[in-house]
């Protein structure tokens, strides 16, 4: 799993040799944490099949997933990138206001419900992607749809 990247204090030293040409190129996501968090449930909604496929491949590759699951990994990245691109195309203003709110509120989703409601509505209307939190207890309103919440700072 992820580990700490080496950091040098005086200069940046990263091996930048690209992948060999026989491995297809894919554009990385390039989004920082707040936009990713803001788009996460839509990524999950559209890319669930690819994500599950990739994670299963990694589980079953017996420690060689880094090499053997590159194809699935490219699909995952392309799918997530497509979601972010679509949101950028259709709901840029709402997306921006939501992730900037997250950025300003410690990346706590419960602190940004008004912006999130607008973003969810826009994405649902234009992209047909809905935010669903799995395993919500039956008969309880999902926490992102509640009108009044106990935890709120403003």
């Amino acid at each position: 799993m992820s580990a700490r990247q080496p950091r040098f204090t005086s200069q940046v030293l990263i091996d930048t040799t690209p992948l060999p040409d026989d491995i297809p190129k894919v554009q990385e996501l390039g989004a920082s944490s707040a936009p990713l968090l803001s788009a996460s449930f839509f990524i999950g909604a559209r890319c669930k099949a690819y994500n599950d496929d990739y994670m299963m491949c990694k589980t079953e590759a017996n420690g060689r997933g880094e090499f053997e699951c590159m194809k699935e990994g490219r699909k995952v990245t392309r799918c997530a990138a497509s979601v972010i691109r679509d949101i950028n195309e259709h709901c840029l203003a709402e997306f921006r206001s939501h992730w900037q709110c997250l950025e300003n509120h410690n990346q706590q989703l419960w602190n940004c419900r008004p912006a999130e409601r607008q973003l969810n509505k826009c994405v649902f209307d234009k992209l047909k992607l809905e935010k669903v939190i799995p395993d919500t207890p039956k008969g309880e309103e999902p926490v992102h749809l509640r009108k009044r919440q106990i935890f709120q700072s403003s």
């Binding site: 799993m1 992820s2 992948l19 894919v26 990385e28 996501l29 990713l36 968090l37 996460s40 449930f41 990524i43 999950g44 890319c47 690819y50 994500n51 990739y54 994670m55 990694k58 997933g65 880094e66 699951c69 590159m70 699935e72 990994g73 490219r74 995952v76 990245t77 997530a80 989703l109 939190i133 799995p134």
Partner: peptide, 16 residues
């Protein structure tokens, strides 16, 4: 769940 939805994308990038 927000994190779970993101993990495959992040892991794929890291693995590449």
């Amino acid at each position: 769940w927000a994190r779970i939805h993101l993990i495959p994308a992040l892991q794929a990038e890291e693995d590449r």
